[in-house]
């Protein structure tokens, strides 16, 4: 009997939680705010779902009931992606070492 692909995805999910656990504990507390803004940006990778949903509207039916939600999601996720990465960049640029 073959293994259901869901099991593989679940494995990836569980292992990623552990990876996240160890990686985040190694983040220095002074960078906790950038950590939040960057996790915000990367969780907007949900935009791939939005793109698929939006492009499902075809021909005369570009903005149908389903695709319109896709388009809206694209806007929201894009605000987050650009906003999240750029504001993180802006913050990280401010962290400087003492001038020797």
């Amino acid at each position: 009997m073959e293994i259901d692909p869901f099991v593989f995805r679940l494995s990836i999910f569980i292992l990623s939680i552990f990876v996240g656990y160890y990686v985040v504990w190694s983040v220095t507390p002074s960078l906790h705010t950038p950590l939040m803004s960057v996790t915000n940006a990367i969780s907007s990778v949900i935009i791939v779902g939005a793109i698929i949903a939006a492009l499902a509207g075809k021909g005369n039916d570009i903005f149908n009931q389903a695709s319109i939600f896709g388009y809206l999601a694209i806007i929201l996720a894009a605000v987050n992606i650009f906003g999240g990465f750029l504001v993180t960049q802006r913050m990280l640029a401010m962290y400087k070492k003492k001038k020797k």
Binding site: R9, I12, V19, V24, M36, S43, V45, G49
Partner: peptide, 30 residues
């Protein structure tokens, strides 16, 4: 993060599942 992971399972998308798990555990640790 958990919301993103849930959608990741629906869309069968690894990037979304990994990210969701990372963000979910990050927020939990914080």
């Amino acid at each position: 993060g958990w919301a993103a992971a849930g959608i990741g399972f629906t869309l069968e998308n690894t990037a979304l599942i990994i990210t969701g798990a990372l963000v979910g555990s990050s927020g939990a640790i914080l």
